[in-house]
Amino acid sequence: MPIVNLWGKNFEIDKKMKNIYKPELASVTKVIEETEDIKTIRIKHDSNPKPGQFYEVSVMGIGEAPFGSASYSSEYVDLTIRAVGNLTNKLMNVKQGENLAVRGPYGNGFPMEKFKGKDIVIIGGGTGVAPVRTVIEYIEINREDYGEVDLFFGFRSPEEFLFKYDFDKWKEIFKFNITIDKPYEGWEGNVGFLNALLEKSEISPENKIVILVGPPIMIKVTVESLEKMGFSDDQIYVSLERMMQCGVGKCGHCMVGDKYVCKDGPVFCYETVKGMVD
């Protein structure tokens, strides 16, 4: 008696079961040159991300990296990418009509439902403006659900502006504030850091939610300003960055305390962030 026959057949893989590590090909429908080293790559994708969610984008032979969606649409996803390393340099060469290997959307996103009825202050610094653009586009579509919306953008210089082509539209619908770090020839607008502009605006914390995305140092000083202005930490929502590999809470790299930035985040209420220490 061959005893192994007692086992029956091999366990069969459910063909419909998703392989969480396998990207799918998506076609590039548009490439927008934002700045010297930043491009927005639009892919055809009907995954309809929540504002603040992200995708893992592959360059075969180099690897994968997470990028926040910069758009809110059921037909496409805009990925705004700065050339900073091997993978992103390669992405700069992607052309319309080619395919990108992506998986996602992942992460929790901003709890927009919870913010209903509130005034929203949206603060983005540098490439941090990309993920907040999803929030802006979401509010455009669901305008009646939210009160006043103030936008605060900070860039190093006008050459670094992202989504310039949206500015006029946003000025019409929202209160639009923008500043650059240092004086620039021909620039007549605000100069100085975002938090200074914010403090000058004297907006009151009443019935407000703050959405804040940018480099860690900018988040730190902006939160300090907000606290000075009377905002409490439970009104502030930030998107965190960590080393990520799998994007789905398995590989372990992005853990901070008992939170996985990829799956419990990347969006966290600042009250929670304060307790997230290494």
Binding site: Y21, M60, I62, G63, Q245, C246, K250, C251, G252
Partner: peptide
């Protein structure tokens, strides 16, 4: 302990290859 890294292991032609995961340590 099951943490891992995800890396690509390209063939010499650079057009084909494998995506692999490797043992990682915190």
């Amino acid at each position: 302990c099951g943490c891992f890294d995800v890396k690509d292991d390209p063939d010499l032609d650079f057009e084909s290859g494998k995506r692999i995961r490797l043992d990682a340590s915190c």
